[in-house]
Structure formats: C-alpha cells, structure tokens
C-alpha cells in the first residue's frame, strides 16, 4: 500500500524528513509516533500528495508520488482519505452535505449518495444531527463527520493526523474503536499521534517512531511497543 525508500523532504530550510524508508501492507494499522515537530505531519502530507519528496522513491496505492502530476492528484485522493486534528469540515454545510461531498466529486448518483450517506450517518450515530450545520456540532461530532466522510467512499488507505488531538479521553477512545473496526474490514490505516494513551488502546497496531525527521526504534517502555512484533525500521525489508 505504502512504499517509501530513502525519502528526503525539505520544508523551507529545514530538512523535515531524512532518509525515510517505510513499507505498509494492505490492511495494516500503523501508528506514527514521535514528539511534536518530529515530522509526522510532513510524512502524511507526502503520502497524500500534498508535498513532493526531494529525493527517494515513493509509491502510495499504486501511484508514483515522484512523478505525480496535478491531474493525477484526484486519482490518489480517491484512494486515500485524510482525517485531521482540526476536522476540516465545512461549518456552514450540514452533516449530510459534508459527507455527501466526497461522493459528489466522484460522480455518484444522488440516489446512491442518499443511501450511502444515511448508512454511514447511522453507523456513526449522527442521525439526530443529519441536517444541522456543522458549526453547531461538538468537536467529537465534527470529527465523526470527518471520519464518516472518509469512510463513505471506502478508501484503500486512511491517513489520520492527530485525529484525537482536540477531543477528550472518552471521545478519543471511541474514535480509536471506530478506526479499529474500520481496519478489520480491510482498510489500511496510518495514524499520527503523540498521545501514549491512544497507543495503548490499539496495542496490536504497529508503531513507527519518528524523531527529527528520521525513523528510529521506539522508546523503551512505550505502550504497545513490547507487544509490537513487527519490524519497526524499514518495515518489511
């Protein structure tokens, strides 16, 4: 699903990613950990085609990121859904519209949109708020709308950048359960977080630790790291 080889990436003057090699297989659940400023967001941006690596080789869902042209970006974004810490929902539009937008851009018929959006709304327990504008929703509800928007299109890969960053502990736990459930259906998930509690809720997930733009072995004693049997450096190399 994700194949990065010796990827280097600079932002401004700083080198945000240094010689990153990472392989993620279909159906994996991967946590991207590391302190603030480590390069987690940068790595995710590379994965959804928002940043082009300077050197190296990068392939996501069969799309070569090194040769990505602007016209191919929609193709990548239809395979890869992104969830953000700040939700990125349209505040003036209703829950339904916010979720439907992902299907509209794919040219799905309105009948089908209606059916699929309703199903996701039910699954995420948003039925009562279906037609409320998103600005009236709580943070947890808005994040569920964002997740619903990514789930409704059945993406191959979901990238989540600190999705629990603005939520309290209970909501965060619920959210991780949602991601785990979605993962069991076969969707690959890569989630950046620096919250150790979050890691403990999905101990079976693989952890990739970033420090100053480099992938390093996880800190000893970090939750989940003991259980992590998968190789951390270099993925399955």
């Amino acid at each position: 699903m994700v194949h990065l080889e010796h990827v280097n990436c600079t932002l401004g003057v700083a080198q945000a990613l240094k010689d990153v090699t990472l392989h993620v297989e279909r159906g994996e659940f991967v946590f991207l950990t590391g302190p603030s400023g480590a390069g987690k967001t940068t790595l995710l941006r590379v994965l959804y085609g928002d940043l082009k690596p300077k050197t190296g080789a990068a392939d996501v869902a069969g799309v070569d990121l090194m040769r990505l042209r602007g016209s191919q970006l929609p193709e990548l974004r239809r395979k890869v859904a992104v969830v953000f810490q700040d939700f990125k929902v349209l505040p003036e539009r209703s829950v339904f519209e916010n979720i439907a937008i992902a299907l509209e851009v794919r040219g799905v018929s309105s009948v089908s949109i209606d059916k699929r959006v309703r199903a996701v709304i039910r699954a995420l327990d948003l039925e009562e708020r279906s037609y409320a504008p998103c600005r009236q929703l709580s943070g947890g509800e808005q994040q569920r709308v964002a997740i619903a928007r990514s789930m409704v299109v059945n993406p191959e890969l979901i990238l989540a950048d600190e999705p629990t960053g603005n939520l309290d502990s209970d909501l965060s736990r619920h959210l991780i359960e949602l991601f785990k459930q979605f993962n069991t259906y076969g969707t690959t998930i890569i989630m950046a977080t620096h919250n150790r509690e979050v890691l403990s809720w999905a101990p079976e997930a693989r952890q990739v630790h970033l420090v100053r733009g480099q992938i390093v072995p996880p800190e000893p004693g970090a939750p989940g790291s003991v259980l992590d049997t998968k190789p951390i450096i270099g993925g399955r190399l």
Binding site: P74, L76, R77, K88, L90, I101, A102, V153
Partner: peptide, 16 residues
C-alpha cells in the same frame, strides 16, 4: 479557501 482545500482533499477534479 477551506472549501477548495476540502474538495481537493476528497479527490475533486479541477473542473469540479
């Protein structure tokens, strides 16, 4: 801007 960004994130083509 936000709308354009979100549309682009969910895979909208330029014309959309």
């Amino acid at each position: 801007k936000d709308e354009v960004e979100i549309l682009s994130l969910v895979g909208a083509r330029a014309w959309f």
